[in-house]
Structure formats: C-alpha cells, structure tokens
C-alpha cells in the first residue's frame, strides 16, 4: 500500500523542459498514478485536466474527482471531491481562475465547481431538450466549446453564457467523441467511427477535414488534446495508443501500446497536455493515470 501511495504522492519525473518544435514527439512513460492521497485506488478514470498547477482526474468508477497540486515535477494529493450533483464524471477541464468544469455522464450536464471543489451550478445550455454534450473544452478566456451530438453541432458559449456561434457537423461523418480548442480559437474534433480529425478555424461555421480517414493508424479514437506547442494528441481507445499529429494534420507517429504494465494503455479515455511537458492519460481499464514525458 505504501508503495502505491508513494507513487501517487511523488510523481518524481525527471523533467527537462525544452523548447518543443512542432515535430515528432516521443513519449517516455513516467510512474503511473494509481491511488488518491488516502491510498484509495482509482476506478476507470475517464477524464483528466491539467494546467501546470493542478491535476484533476475524473475517477469515474468511484463517482468522484481526485485532485493533485502539481509543480511540474511532483504531484501532491489534495482531498478528493465527491458531489451528489456529479454522480458519474466523465470529462473534466480547468477553466480560468482554477474553476473546474465537469461533464457528468449520467445527467449529461456540465457542472461548474470553484477552485476548492464547491458546486457552483450547471452550465445553462441553450435550447433545452435539444443539446446532449458528449464532450467539451474551455479556452483561456472561459469560453466553452460544447460537442452537442444531439443536434450535430459545436456550441461556442461565451463566459457570459451567451451563444457566440455554432459550428455545424459535416453532412457525412462517423461519430464525434471529443473536442479540443487551441489558443488561436481553432477547434479540433475527433471522429471515432471514421477515424480522422476535423477542424474549424476561429470564425468558421462548419468543420473541415484536417486529416484523411486514418484506419491504419487509429482503431477507435475517442479523445483529443492540443498542447499549445503545435501538436495534437489523439487517444486511440481500442488500439491502446496515443497518435500524434501536427496542427496542420501531418501524422507524427504513434506511441505506447495495449497492455497492463506501466507505460502501456488499456482503453485509454482522455488526455491532457501539461505546460511542464507532461502528457497525462486517463488509462481507463488499467484504473490509473499514466503520465508520459514528451520529448522531440
């Protein structure tokens, strides 16, 4: 038990932050996080958020959020957050001022928590009854990008709660599972069924293909993240891997593989790129968070 706790408390990774070029990235596995600060094991974590100061895990199977403060090298456990308003958290993001935004899978609502984990309320979605958020992302200004699979659109919701714009899904696609937005307001969406990435530029009202259908490189991608350094990371759930692209869609390689041992992945569900140079993966069927050190 002690060794598991140590693994959680000290994410002792030898980081050598470098000026990353937008090129191929190799991922070196760091020790996984298996437990919270009390030694309780994670169960099927599906969401993960990080911002260089905090790491928040949607510990989905336990119906809670597990938090760590993070200084780029060491992850220190904070008290977990269990709320009746969030019985089944599946996606988590960190907003400005440390706000925690969480999509609940059972209720299909996005909750706002303050930086201490106190429930502030649910995000008010436009046209109630016509929106089912499958996923979402938030930009530095607090604008929400909601992947609405019910009405086939991305809803861009300003920090004031007003709809800024909508991005229509294309006429033909498979099924969209996740969304990411970069610092320029560029929106990336990943198609799980016809494995490819779609993109919409900052003012676009519709999505365009960023890549071809990449059946040979991804089996069933379900999560996407842009790292602010010109790289897009895609989680291949069924293939147990991370696929790396440049933001122009250029394929940059595939990392990790299906497995149980540290560094491998089984049905990973979400990914977060930390400014310190770590990539955190919610490794769902391995009941852990698997960090990777990103290197060119």
């Amino acid at each position: 038990m002690m060794s598991r706790l140590v693994a959680a408390v000290l994410l002792a990774v030898a980081l050598t932050p470098a000026a990353w070029a937008a090129g191929a990235a190799s991922l070196r596995a760091a020790p996984p996080i298996y437990v919270d600060g009390r030694g309780a094991g994670l169960v099927r974590p599906e969401g993960i958020a990080c911002d260089g100061k905090s790491l928040v895990v949607a510990d989905t199977g336990n119906g809670r959020l597990v938090r760590f403060s993070f200084d780029g090298k060491t992850a220190l456990p904070q008290p977990p957050i269990s709320l009746p308003q969030l019985p089944y958290p599946i996606r988590v993001k960190l907003g400005p001022e440390g706000e925690i935004l969480v999509l609940d899978g059972r209720q299909r609502k996005i909750a706002r928590l303050d930086s201490n984990g106190a429930f502030k309320g649910y995000v008010e979605l436009p046209e109630p009854g016509t929106v089912v958020p499958r996923s979402f992302d938030v930009d530095a200004g607090g604008t929400l990008y909601i992947l609405d699979v019910f009405s086939g659109r991305v809803i861009v919701l300003g920090a004031d709660g007003r709809v800024r714009r909508q991005i229509a899904f294309p006429d033909r696609y498979g099924f969209f599972s996740d969304i990411a937005v970069d610092s320029r307001g560029q929106v990336f969406v990943v198609d799980s069924v016809e494995p490819r990435i779609w993109v919409a530029n900052a003012e676009a009202s519709e999505l365009s293909p960023l890549t071809d259908v990449l059946t040979a490189d991804m089996y069933f991608p379900t999560a996407i993240e842009e790292d602010g350094q010109g790289r897009v990371f895609v989680v291949d759930q069924n293939g147990g891997g991370i696929v790396v692209f440049a933001t122009d869609g250029t394929f940059r390689g595939r990392q990790s593989r299906y497995g149980w041992k540290d560094g491998f992945l089984r049905y990973p569900a979400a990914v977060c790129a930390d400014p310190s140079g770590l990539l955190f993966v919610a490794d769902r069927e391995n009941n852990r968070v698997q960090p990777f050190i990103v290197a060119d």
């Binding site: 089944y88 899978g105 059972r106 089912v132 699979v149 019910f150 009405s151 086939g152 899904f169 099924f175």
Partner: peptide, 14 residues
C-alpha cells in the same frame, strides 16, 4: 437513468 449511454442513442439520428 444509466451511467453510461451508447452515445448514438442520443445522437442526431437517435
């Protein structure tokens, strides 16, 4: 009422 949905159930074609 279930924790996990088969997402196409609530998709465009439902």
């Amino acid at each position: 009422s279930k924790n996990r949905l088969h997402w196409p159930v609530v998709g465009e074609d439902s």
